[in-house]
Design a protein around this nucleic acid. Structure first.
Length: 789
DNA sequence: AGTTGCCGTTTTTTT
DNA sequence: AACGGCAACT
């Protein structure tokens, strides 16, 4: 069967090119009318290479979607002849929606609008045999990947403490990102230390083929290799994809770059959209060089700059561009706006991370009421963007205490939860009995009395017969190799799996019902029902949600495919909440009011980034600062803390060097709320301002010049670390003063209500009504009748 | 075979 | 501080 039969099938489903062209002429082109000249140029310059340099908030998605519509309307391409690639599913979804909206009808046939990975899955399923795979290959997640590598490391007799599988996975991913197969890894990389790594990489690839599986990196790597080694296949696609569009081009890695260059090699109708100033994924293989080099790669490329910003106020833009100015080798853009001046960027220093969280919490409450000299803000309009996810905790703790609703974006994803992966392993095994990794995961979950020894017997039997683990288990059971309770349980499991497998063909049974049967009869649901830990109910809830999610799919296979590629977790909820997320997660988003806490050297810019990548690392951190500031539409508040707990240890830090790069005339330095001696700040601020250095101004109005601070620094120097808590507590931290009494009824966010049955320093023993007796830190507990602050 | 407790690591993250 | 992994114990 020709690979194109299926593609051609899309034609019928979509609007014909001629019909569209006719429509375009008869109706004019409203989608062009509200574009600015630069956007319009990016849309109308359809042939040949185009680089759209789109600064933050300049309407890049608008231009991109208009371009797709324009290609369709002018009859240049049919919907299935446009290849449009994004990095995230969210971006792909948004683009589909917007194209549909512009066309005034939903487009069924844009099969090639998607993420790099989802498009590569489609391509690879068609040409799997060229990569030594069957087209029903499974896609391993990181967890499977690491378990597999661990087995290989152990089999090679290497101490897996010196060569952690996680680290090896990182190295291999790095190679895959650079499109390097094991034989292509340069000897410089494969030096003394990594020689073993390359061998393991080769073994890993072999093992994946045996398992008929790929990891994420392989999706691209295999397709690139197929294109490189099968010119005929490449040519088909070069001809088929008449126009190529790429979003977030600055984030492409070498493999993606090669993939694009190969596909665009014929007609060169490629339009890449990106912003070199927003390249923040270098640490995972993205090459800013790709965008910097575009004009060399595609001679005659047309470069369009989108510089009019529709998002932020002039103060915010000025602050952002002054910061990013510190980077060398930029393509150069200057954002401008017609918006009114608005508020200056606000800057404030705090004693420690908890105080920072407390202040921001109060600030948000005030902003909600509109008592900050600004309009009232809804909680949905406010975001807190942090450098590293551990910073989120201080905010969560504080917001729980004061009852400020928040949502954490990113974080542990639904499909990464243990119970979900276990359930999915069952489904995988039902659908494909040869899935050894899935088998390993669930043989003894729930406990079936199958320990190391029994599992080893299964392994050996399977290997001896050259069959899958499940089949090996069947043979081992038949031959009576596994005795006792375990043997009986294994027999049941093997038979059940086979039975469920047959049920997939049952027309009277929906796949949702089947899923429920599998989870119930395998004993997995019961396993959590019997579990007394406080998380168990949540896990059962998640399992229910998982089954519900099946609703949207035809069958289990379709669902599994979806899950392996779409790990999204942004459930919509209607309630007004403050968003908390990392700067990385914030890319592409915007909020009227943004808080940027934790601007301390070492945290932001991150020490690790600077140690590992030097100046390059620092510049990426600076771009992160740029991304952060440009998320704000109206109000941007930057803050830093003098002390912070890191890995349970107090550490003091200096304000970030990026604070120095903020332009003074666009920044308002806030006086902290009268904690360190009232009028002191205001008077000192003037002295500091004369020195013209933001940091010293902050230092003056702040704790940094206070006698208390200096004492603390001296003491910190003596002891090697500071102990801010003890000296601070009496001044402000009323919440931390333990005032609990035995028998008192208290509330804990996670465990609910309970009575105090023991007090030891700042730890309480509480007999919770639902969760039973637990030891908890006093700070996490609120007295029933006393609302702090 | 399963449980407990100690030790070491962790904190850019998306597909 | 908190979690996961591993070893020693029951």
């Amino acid at each position: 069967m020709s690979s194109f039969d299926e593609m051609d099938a899309f034609e019928g489903a979509s609007l014909s090119a001629r019909a569209m062209a006719a429509r375009s002429q008869s109706m004019g082109a409203p989608y062009l009318d509200d574009l600015n000249p630069a956007q319009r140029e990016a849309v109308e310059r359809m042939d040949g290479p185009v680089l759209m340099l789109a600064g933050a908030g300049t309407g890049k998605t608008k231009a991109l979607t208009a371009r797709i519509v324009h290609l369709l309307m002018t009859g240049r391409a049919r919907p299935n002849e446009i290849l449009a690639v994004t990095f995230t599913n969210k971006a792909a979804r948004e683009m589909k929606e917007r194209v549909g909206r512009l066309l005034g009808q939903s487009i069924e046939g844009m099969p090639w609008l998607g993420t790099f990975h989802s498009i590569c899955v489609k391509l690879l399923r068609r040409h799997a045999e060229l990569a030594g795979l069957k087209s029903n290959f499974t896609i391993l997640d990181t967890d499977d990947q690491i378990r597999l590598l661990k087995q290989l490391v152990q089999a090679a007799g290497i101490d897996d403490k010196r060569w952690p599988a996680r680290q090896l996975a990182g190295v291999i991913d790095g190679w895959k990102n650079r499109a390097l197969t094991p034989d292509k890894v340069p000897s410089a990389d494969a030096g003394a230390y990594n020689r073993r790594g390359v061998e393991l990489y080769a073994q890993y690839q072999t093992r994946l083929r045996e398992l008929n599986a790929v990891d994420f990196g392989d999706l691209l790597l295999h397709v690139v290799v197929i294109f490189q080694t099968h010119p005929d296949v490449l040519e088909q696609y070069q001809r088929w994809f008449r126009y190529i569009l790429v979003d977030e081009y600055q984030d492409t890695n070498v493999a993606q770059y090669l993939w694009l260059r190969l596909l665009a090699g014929g007609h060169r109708n490629i339009c890449c959209v990106g912003d070199d100033d927003q390249s923040i994924y270098g640490w995972r293989g993205a090459e800013v060089g790709n965008i910097l080099r575009f004009e060399k790669d595609f001679p005659g490329a047309h470069v369009v700059r989108l510089e009019q910003n529709y998002r932020s106020t002039p103060h915010i833009l000025a602050a952002a561009s002054n910061v990013i100015r510190g980077n060398a080798g930029r393509l150069g853009k200057e954002l401008w706006t017609e918006a009114d001046e608005g508020e200056k960027v606000r800057l404030i220093g705090h004693w420690d991370g908890e105080e920072e969280a407390r202040w921001i919490g109060e600030e948000i409450e005030a902003m909600q009421r509109g008592t900050r000299g600004t309009r009232p803000f809804g909680l949905n309009e406010v975001a807190i963007l942090v450098r590293a996810s551990h910073q989120m905790r201080a905010f969560e703790d504080r917001f729980l205490t004061i009852g400020l609703p928040y949502r954490v974006i990113g974080g542990p994803r639904f499909y990464e939860r243990m119970e979900i992966r276990d359930a999915m392993a069952y489904f995988r095994l039902v659908v494909s009995p040869e899935d050894d990794l899935a088998f390993e995961r669930i043989v003894n979950t729930p406990k079936r009395g199958l320990g190391d020894k029994a599992q080893q017997v299964i392994q050996t039997t399977a290997r001896a017969n050259g069959v899958s683990l499940l089949e090996g288990a069947r043979i081992a059971v038949e031959d009576g190799l596994i005795k006792g309770k375990g043997g009986a349980a294994l027999r049941t499991l093997v038979e059940d799996l086979r039975r469920w497998g047959r049920m997939t063909g049952d027309a009277d049974l929906s796949h949702m019902e089947l899923a429920e049967i599998v989870l119930d009869e395998s004993g997995y649901t019961g396993h959590w029902q019997n579990d007394k830990t406080p998380e168990a109910p949540g896990r059962l809830e998640n399992l229910k949600e998982l089954v519900k999610a099946l609703e949207n799919f035809e069958n289990l296979q379709g669902f599994l495919e979806h899950v392996s590629l779409v790990m999204d977790n942004d459930k919509q909820d209607a309630e007004q909440k403050v968003s908390i997320m990392t700067l990385h997660a914030a890319k592409g988003l915007e909020f009227p009011a943004v808080f940027l806490p934790g601007w301390e050297d070492g945290l932001f810019p991150s020490q690790r980034s600077m140690d590992e990548s030097g100046l390059k690392g620092l510049e990426e951190e600076r771009r992160l600062a740029y991304v952060g500031i440009t998320r704000a539409e109206e109000l941007c508040t930057i803050s830093f803390a003098g002390n912070r707990r890191v890995f349970g240890q107090w550490q003091s830090a200096l304000p970030s060097r990026f604070v120095d790069e903020l332009p003074e005339e666009h920044v308002e330095v806030l006086t902290p709320p009268g904690l360190y001696g009232g009028g002191y700040g205001a008077a000192a601020a003037q002295g500091g301002a004369a020195r013209g250095n933001i940091e010293s101004r902050v230092a003056d109005v702040n704790v940094y010049n206070s006698p208390g601070w200096k004492r603390m620094q001296a003491r910190a120097g003596q002891r090697g670390m500071s102990q801010p808590k003890e000296s601070r507590t009496t001044v402000i931290d009323l919440a931390a003063v333990s005032s609990f009494t035995m028998g008192e009824r208290v509330f804990h966010q996670k465990f609910g209500y309970g009575a105090i049955i023991g007090i030891e320093g700042d730890k309480l023993e509480v007999d919770f009504e639902k969760a039973g007796p637990k030891k908890v830190v006093a700070q996490f507990v609120t007295s029933n009748d006393d609302i702090p602050f």
